[in-house]
Design a protein around this nucleic acid. Structure first.
Length: 273
DNA sequence: AACGCGCCCTGTCCGC
DNA sequence: TGCGGACAGGGCGCGT
C-alpha cells in the first residue's frame, strides 16, 4: 500500500495533531507487528511518553518522543495510522496496536495483513536505520547526476533498482511504474544502460509524480487511508499502474503487464524503450 | 556480493 | 453459492 506519498500524507496529518500529547495507555492486539519486543516491554516504554514531532523517512512514519527515542512505523502493504475521533475511524477494522492519548482520543495502528512493523529506536538505533536507507527523491541534493551515478554500477532492471530502498528511498511499485512511463524508459532495462540524459528525465519524473500524489493525498487502490481514515485521490491520475490492456495515454496502444522479480510491472512497449 | 526468490498474512476477485 | 487460484502498494532472509 503505502509508498512515500502515502506515508507523507499520514505524517502531514499527524504533525498538526500529535505533538504535545501524551500516551496514557498501550494495547497490543497483534504482537507480530512488534519485532523483538514483548507487548509488556513496548507498553512500559511508551506509557507516559509525550510526542514531540512527526517526521517521514523513505516510506516510514517516524514519531519522535520526549525521551529521545522514536517510534518508527513501517506501514507494509496495508498499514495505516488513524485517529479514533475521525469520522471514518470505525473503518479501521484490523487494529493491531492502540495508543491511548491524554485527551481520550486514540492513535490506532491498523493493518489487515500485518506486514507492517512498529519499532522503538534510541538515537543510535535510528541513526543506523537512517544510514542504511538511500537518497530521498524529494531532497534538493537528489539531482540527475546523482541518480545517474548511482545507477551505473548495477545490471538489475531499472524497475527493480528503483524498489531497492538502499539506493533511492520511498519509491515502490506504483511510483516506479509511473516515473518510468513519464521518462519513457523500459522497466526491464538494466540500470546501467540508463543514459545521463535519461537519468535526469527519470529524476524529474520521480519528483513530479511523488509531489503530485502528495498534493492529491496519496493513491488509494483499495486499502490506503490517511490519519482521518480518508482515501487518497491520486489513483485516477495513474497512467500505467494497474492499467493492463487499457490504451496508453500517449499512443493508444495497450498497456502491458510483465512480471519482474515476482512483481507486476506495467508499461507501454511503444513509449518506453 | 549483487541478485532473484519465497515467504510473511488477509482480503478480494475471477473462473469454473 | 462454493471453492481454488491468482493477486495485492513491502521487505526480510536465504541461496547462488
Amino acid at each position: 500500500m503505502p509508498e512515500l506519498p502515502e506515508a507523507e500524507t499520514i505524517v502531514r496529518g499527524l504533525a498538526s495533531r500529535l505533538p504535545g500529547r501524551t500516551i496514557t495507555g498501550v494495547h497490543v492486539k497483534h504482537a507480530d507487528v512488534l519485532p523483538g519486543l514483548t507487548p509488556a516491554a513496548f507498553g512500559r516504554a511508551l506509557r507516559g511518553r509525550r510526542f514531540e514531532a512527526v517526521e517521514r523517512r523513505a516510506k516510514k512514519v517516524v514519531l519522535r518522543l520526549d525521551d529521545g527515542r522514536r517510534l518508527v512505523v513501517n506501514l507494509g502493504m496495508t498499514g495505516g495510522l488513524v485517529l479514533s475521533r475521525s469520522p471514518r475511524a470505525a473503518e479501521a477494522t484490523h487494529v493491531a496496536v492502540r495508543l491511548d492519548l491524554d485527551d481520550g482520543e486514540q492513535l490506532l495502528y491498523d493493518d489487515a495483513r500485518r506486514f507492517g512493523r512498529l519499532e522503538l529506536l534510541d538515537p543510535e538505533g535510528w541513526e543506523r536505520k537512517h544510514a542504511a536507507l538511500g537518497a530521498e527523491p524529494l531532497a534538493d541534493d537528489f539531482t540527475g547526476k546523482v541518480l545517474f551515478e548511482l545507477t551505473q554500477r548495477s545490471r538489475t532492471p531499472i524497475r527493480n533498482w528503483l524498489l531497492d530502498q538502499r539506493r533511492v528511498a520511498g519509491v515502490g511499485n506504483i511510483y516506479a511504474a509511473e516515473a518510468l512511463f513519464r521518462a519513457g524508459i523500459d522497466p526491464a532495462r538494466p540500470a546501467k544502460t540508463v543514459t545521463r540524459r535519461q537519468a535526469t528525465k527519470l529524476r524529474d519524473a520521480l519528483r513530479d509524480v511523488l509531489a503530485e500524489s502528495i498534493a492529491a493525498r496519496g493513491t488509494t487502490i483499495s486499502d490506503f487511508r490517511d490519519e482521518q481514515g480518508e482515501a487518497g485521490a491520486f489513483a485516477r491520475w495513474l497512467r500505467v499502474y494497474g492499467r493492463e490492456d487499457e490504451p496508453c495515454v500517449k499512443c493508444g496502444r495497450p498497456i502491458v503487464r510483465a512480471v519482474l522479480a515476482n512483481r507486476s510491472s506495467f508499461f507501454c512497449r511503444h513509449c518506453q524503450r
